[in-house]
Design a protein around this nucleic acid. Structure first.
Lengths: 159, 159
DNA sequence: CCTGCATGCTTGACACGTCAACTATTGATG
DNA sequence: CATCAATAGTTGACGTGTCAAGCATGCAGG
């Protein structure tokens, strides 16, 4: 570790230095993700859907006409089953999602986008894409590639 | 954008390609942060405190004997005031934090660590440090530096 | 002084995220 | 066929983020 106070340390007005580079990285990663999440949040706000709800809508669009079982949706997000159920409850209440017990396997509950749901996702494609680009626009193309690979390496290390 | 499906795309079993490198980066950043947060979570679990609570305890330790007003704590975390109040409520209930109205400015509520609170933070220093290191141990020292700088650049771009 | 605006929280309401416990089905086994 | 473990979800309870409102307290001007 160096003895100089880092930029991050100044950001959070911390007196004592980070105990390790690892700690500084973890804090930096979490804070950065939070900032980016908030930026995307602002785009969704006028449409009255949350990032997680949007995430579900996008996943369902990707699934097409076959529909997706509840836990399949959960598997594509980093989230536990109970959260998905209630997320879908709210989306169904807003009539953006339709659910139906699967006749072949009555344990499953299949989910589809309603036309209204599809309309919202489509309308959001552009503004979300703009926001995503803007959120990392301060990095040049090479740095974006580098960051992508570094993040991927971290995820790979977590099994 | 390339036409190949990326590793991240496979991770989330997504059919359609990312609309932009920016989108892929944002998704990757959020997912990676989530994974790392969970890893740290596991360390705190046996001590029955959450990452946010630990964060507050650490901040209070850094403040020393003077104590910190509630909103000062909020300023050092990326969080709104209401959350801090209730976070402190729970920490006070566990007797890890002491609160007192400031005599000089009775609008403020000063917060201190109790001896029990200090003991917990100290005991957690090592295991947390280990977890932080482990969370990014798959990157060599140079890559860690690179990642640190890239994240910092992103944060700088968000004002 | 007294009024009125700013500051520092606190409360209420709602969306998550997570765990543990529970229900309904399915499928494999004896 | 009866049973029992595994699978797919749901529900309850609690901690956390966020917004909008509300309540003191402090302060600046008139």
């Amino acid at each position: 570790m160096t003895d100089e106070t880092s930029a991050l340390q100044r950001e959070i007005q911390q007196r004592r230095p980070f105990r390790s580079r690892g700690q500084e990285l973890v804090v930096g990663l979490l804070r950065t993700a939070d900032l980016v999440r908030r930026a995307v949040d602002r785009v969704l706000e006028p449409y009255d859907i949350t990032p997680q709800q949007y995430n579900v809508l996008r996943i369902l669009r990707g699934a097409g006409d076959g529909g997706l079982p509840t836990l399949e949706i959960g598997g594509r997000m980093l989230e536990q089953a109970p959260g998905i159920t209630r997320l879908l409850d709210r989306l169904e209440a807003k009539a953006l999602v339709r659910r139906e017990r699967c006749p072949q396997d009555r344990r499953q509950v299949l989910c589809w986008l309603t036309p209204a749901g599809l309309a919202i996702v489509e309308k959001l494609d552009e503004p979300i894409d703009d926001a995503d680009r803007a959120a990392v626009a301060m990095l040049c193309a090479e740095d974006q590639e580098r960051l992508l690979r570094l993040l991927e390496a971290i995820r790979a290390g977590h099994h």
